[in-house]
Structures are given as C-alpha cells and as structure tokens.
Design a protein around this nucleic acid. Structure first.
Length: 347
DNA sequence: AACCGTAACAACCGCAGCTAT
DNA sequence: GATAGCTGCGGTTGTTACGGT
C-alpha cells in the first residue's frame, strides 16, 4: 500500500497557474517565507496542492531565477556535472544557482541528450574522450537507475574500483570542459547574457499589462487571455511578442484549459483581494518590487542553492588553475560535489 | 493555407528520505 | 524503534508553438 495522496484530489485545481494564483502565492511567501507548504493552500485559499505550490515557487516564482537560453558554458557545466553526478538534477542545479532543476532537466532532455547522442554517432568507432564520456554516462545511468541491485551483485571491491574509475573519468571530463572556457562563466555579471528580473518584478509587469488589458476590456473588447512575463502558460495566441521580456519568449502553453478559468470571474476577486485597481496599481506594483529584495534574502537559505560548493569550485578554478589539478584539489572537488555516501566513504 | 511532426517547457505523479511524535 | 506526515527529487505527461512540406 502506497502513501496516501498529499492532498485530497477533490476540488484541487490542476494545470497552468494563473497570474492571480501566482500573486497570491508570492504575496503569501513574502509574508511567511517559503516552507510549510502544507499550510499554503489553506492559508491562501489557493485551490492547489501543496506540492504544486512548492513547485510553482521553486521553478518559477522564486527570485533570482534566470530563464531563457543556456549559454555554452552552462551547457558544458551541465554535461559534465551530469557525467559526474548522474541525473541528480537538484545537485546539478546547485552549481548553477540561477537555474532550476526542472529547467536543467528539461534542457538536458530536449537539447543536451540529443546533442551528445549526435556527437556520439558522429564519432562512432573512435575511442575518443567523448565516447569515453558516453561510456561513463551509460555506466553512471545504470548505477543510477539500479544502483542497489548492481551493487549487491558485484563485490564491493569491484564496485569500488569501478566507482574510482568513474570518478576519475568524470573529473577528467569536467577538467576538459572547464579548461576550454575562459573563467567568465562563473557567477558575476555577464554582459552578453540577460539577467532577468526577479519574479516579483515580472509579476508586477504582468499586472501592468493586465491592467492595460483590463482597461481595454472594459472599453468593450472581448476578454483576452492573460499575458505574463514569466509564464508561458498565460501566453495567449493573441499575445504580441513585445510584451515579453527577453528569455520569456517561451513557445509553450497558452493555458488552454486553465487560462479560461483565469479569464473571467476571478478578476474581480483578484481586484478586491489585492486592491489592484487602475488608480492604485503603480504604488502596489512598486510595493511588490520593493519586496523582491526581501524575497531574495528569504530565498537564500533554500537548501537547493548551495553556494559553498560552488565557491569551492570557483576557488579551485581561479586560484589553482584547472589544468594543473593535483590530488588535493581533486579531493576537494569531490567532497564539494557531494558525491554519494559510498563515494565519500571511499575517500 | 493547411496539415503534420517536432521542440519546448510547465506541471503532474509517485517514490524516497527526512523529521517529528 | 515504529509510524505518520511533509518535503524534495526525478521521471513523465500534456499542451502549444514552430517549422517544414
């Protein structure tokens, strides 16, 4: 018998989130901070499962999330961290603090996996570093998916040797990838790469759009679908691209089913709830913007943003030099990468 | 212009681990 | 130590836009 569902499915709304829901959620988290997700639906009145609230926050509304195209450096980081850690997206995401695990996972599944496979096909037959890496990937994914059974089948010594080899290969792969790059890929201002506004600003902007739309709606036009900067779910077909922030020009989702729900009566309830009317919106929006800083502070202790390991890698890269890696640095990196307990035990 | 296959990504689902009782 | 509840994670699905024919 499995666990009971996290929430009763009756009356729980599913599907894309509406801006109203986003704002309710953000507003609640501004007050109470992230966490205690169980209480969120009841306290906010959101007809959403607690998991859904958490997911929406961590994957979309949380401040400091960068969306849009992955840079080449990020790609390389992901590829090699994946080789190192397997499909532990949360762990990988902790080294790319502005990216969510879901984002990285999606990017891996839609882009990088295919890219690697193509590369593999292109170099078929040659025992290149990439094919070595692919071999590692395979063995890694095997151990990832059925680690306990395979481990139990082989002797500990064999397993440890394999683990050691895998780790060594992963290190090499990571070193190769990182040594190709100039050190400008790690945190810090990246001029060529847009840094997106915090979620609150995005929501504020969507509100501005919404207010504009609402005004025009009131003047007789038919209700339109929502548009939002940070969610493609509200990206109606009628939406013009100039309403989008760069990087939010997602192609997916017009929220066909749920956005319909968002279109009509909720607007009024939303108005009354947040007192967002056409005369007061600017100050309220500014308030939302101002609170984004608080959110940033609150979001920092979120465990999936492990800053310390990243700084270790940075240190390792910048102070010591990637190419002249010595054993101590390898150990440091391994520890910082938080390899599984068995690996840690191995060291 | 219409159709179809593919890409992209938000969201859901179920499991596992952790923590409190 | 056992149990229940909560949270986080990874795999998968659903939906829509895009691009090619």
């Amino acid at each position: 018998m499995g666990r009971p569902p996290c929430c009763d499915k009756v009356g729980v709304k599913k599907g894309p989130w509406t801006p109203e829901e986003d704002i309710i959620l953000v507003s609640y988290i501004q007050e109470h901070g992230p966490g205690n997700w169980r209480a969120v639906p009841t306290k906010t009145g959101l007809r959403r499962c607690s998991k859904s609230c958490r997911l929406r926050w961590t994957n979309y509304l949380r401040p400091g999330i960068k969306r849009g195209n992955f840079t080449e450096q990020e790609e390389k980081m992901i590829i090699h961290l994946q080789a190192l850690l397997g499909n532990r997206w949360a762990a990988i995401a902790s080294y790319l603090p502005q990216r969510t695990d879901n984002d990285i996972k999606n990017y891996w599944n839609t882009h990088l996996k295919k890219k690697l496979m193509k590369k593999e096909e292109g170099q078929d037959g040659q025992n290149t570093s990439s094919s070595k890496q692919e071999g590692f990937l395979n063995s890694n994914s095997n151990s990832n998916s059925s680690s306990s059974s395979s481990q139990s089948n082989s002797s500990k010594g064999q397993w440890e040797r394999r683990l050691q080899t895998d780790i060594h290969m992963a290190k090499q792969a990571l070193c190769e990838a990182l040594s190709l790059d100039k050190p400008d890929f790690l945190p810090g201002p990246k001029p060529a790469q847009p840094v997106y506004a915090s979620s609150t600003e995005n929501i504020a902007r969507l509100l501005e759009n919404w207010m504009t739309r609402k005004k025009s709606d009131q003047s007789g036009s038919s209700p339109q679908e929502y548009s939002t900067q940070n969610s493609s779910n509200y990206q109606g077909k009628a939406r013009s691209s100039d309403q989008l922030e760069p990087g939010f020009r997602s192609r997916s989702g017009s929220g066909s089913s749920s956005s319909n729900e968002s279109n009509t009566p909720d607007h009024h309830g939303f108005d009354s709830l947040f007192s967002f009317n056409s005369s007061s919106s600017p100050s309220d929006i500014n308030h939302l913007r101002a609170v984004s800083a608080v959110e940033e502070r609150e979001s920092k202790p979120v465990p999936d943003q492990q800053v310390a390991p990243l700084s270790l890698i940075e240190k390792w890269l910048f102070e010591e030099g990637v190419n002249n890696i010595n054993q101590d640095q390898v150990n440091l990196l391994d520890m910082s990468l938080n390899l599984d307990d068995n690996a840690a035990e191995f060291f």
